[in-house]
Simulated scan of single mutants.
Amino acid sequence: MINFNGVLFPNDKELLTGNNRGLKFGDALFETLRFVNGTLFFWEDHYFRLMASMRILRMEIPMAFTLEYLEEEIMKTVAANKSESGAVRVRLTVFRNDGGWYAPTTNEVSFVIETSVLESPFYLLQEGNYEVELFKDFYVNKDMLSNLKTTNKALNVVASVFAQENGYANCLLVNTDKQVVEAINGNLFVVNGNQIKTAPLSDGCLDGIIRKKLMEIISASEDLELLEASVSPFELQKADELFLTNSIKGIQPISRYRKKEFGCEVAKSLVGKLNAKARLAQTS
C-alpha cells in the first residue's frame, strides 16, 4: 500500500499525472529512513531536515505537517503493509502541487509514503569487494541546493550508469573545484590513523543524517579525531580506510580504489556505535 496525502492506495494505483512537478522539474524532496519494530530511526533529524529543505525551496509547509502527524502517517503505511514487527525502508516524498512552468502556480504540497522490507533490523557491515572510481563527467555544485535531498538527481543517475557499465560498486563525485564530496548514494569518510575526515557542507555534499550521527560519535571519542575539510582525489590512495554512509546501509566500507586496497577496522568499530545510537533513539 502507498500513502498519498493520508489516503492509502494499492501499490499499482496510478496516483500522479503528467503534470506532476516532481516529474517535470525535479520540484520535490524526499527522506529515506529505517523503521524497526515500531521506531523510526533518527526521525526528528529527518523531519527537521525536511522542514528546513522545504523552507529553502519556498514550499508552503501545511499546518498539519507536524512531527507527530507525519510519523503517524508513516506508521499507518507500515501497518497497512503488515510490516510493523520487522525492519522497513521508508521513503517520504514531498512535491509542489501541479501547475505552472518553472514558476509554480501554487506553493502548496502533497506527499507520498512508500515502504519496502529490509533484511536486518541492524546496520550490518558488508565486507568484501566494493570497488569505486571517480566520476568526472559532471560536477557537484558548491551551493546549498546540493546539500538538499531533492529528486533532481540526474548526476547521480548518470554516475550509476557509468558504475554499472564499468563494473564498479559505486562512484565518488567531485565538485567544481575537483574536490571529492560524496558517493552516488551517501557521504564519504576518509581514515588516516586516528583521524577521520569528511567533506564540509560548503563543498556541496549532501547534509546526510548518518553523516551527522557519525560525526557526533567520532567527536565524542577519545581515540578518534574528526576533521571536516575538503578531500583531494590525491588523498584517497594514501588513506588507511574509506567508507560511505547513508540511512539505509549505515556504513559501507570501500575495499578498493584504483590500485589501493583498504581494510575496515575503524568502520567495524563505528558501526557498533552507530547501532547503539540507533537503539538509544528507540528507547528515548
Rank of each mutant, 00 (worst) to 15 (best):
N147R: 01
Y47H: 07
F243H: 03
F30Y: 15
G272A: 05
K238E: 12
E84P: 04
V90A: 04
E71V: 02
D45H: 10
T66V: 01
G38H: 05
T77E: 01
I254C: 02
G38S: 07
K268R: 14
L173S: 11
A52V: 04
F162D: 06
V174F: 09
V190K: 03
Y123C: 09
M75F: 15
E165W: 02
N156V: 10
L236D: 03
Y130I: 04
A87L: 11
Y257P: 01
E84M: 14
F48R: 14
A199F: 08
A239L: 03
W43G: 04
K273C: 00
E222M: 08
F65I: 00
L124D: 07
E60N: 12
N97E: 14
E14S: 13
A154V: 15
M54S: 11
E235N: 10
P233A: 09
F25H: 14
T115I: 11
L236Y: 15
N81G: 06
A64I: 12
S247A: 14
T176R: 09
E84Y: 13
L172K: 00
R34D: 05
D137F: 13
Q179T: 10
Y139L: 12
G6I: 06
N81D: 09
E131R: 08
E131W: 01
E31K: 07
S116T: 04
G193M: 10
E71M: 05
F135T: 11
Q252D: 00
T32R: 02
L70T: 05
Q282R: 14
V271T: 14
D207V: 04
E71R: 10
A278M: 15
E228N: 06
R55F: 09
R55K: 13
K277E: 13
G100T: 11
L244Q: 09
N156P: 13
T151N: 11
E119G: 05
W101I: 12
E68I: 07
E265M: 09
E71G: 03
D207M: 07
F25D: 08
K149M: 09
T17R: 12
A169L: 02
K273N: 01
A154N: 10
R91K: 14
N11R: 06
K273Y: 02
Q252E: 13
K149Q: 02
R258W: 00
F65V: 00
L188V: 07
F42T: 07
G263V: 03
P10C: 06
M75K: 15
R55H: 07
F25R: 06
S255H: 00
T32Y: 00
L8G: 05
K260V: 00
Y257Q: 04
T151F: 10
M63N: 06
R34T: 11
N166E: 03
M75R: 15
L155N: 05
D207S: 14
A163E: 06
V190C: 04
Q126P: 04
Q126C: 08
K24A: 12
S230F: 12
D177L: 11
E68G: 01
G18N: 09
E127Y: 04
E216I: 03
N175Q: 03
M75T: 11
F135W: 13
K197V: 06
V157C: 12
L214A: 00
A79C: 07
M75P: 01
I184V: 12
T151Y: 11
A276E: 14
I74R: 08
S255N: 00
E261M: 02
G204E: 14
I113R: 07
K149W: 13
K136C: 08
E265S: 14
K13S: 13
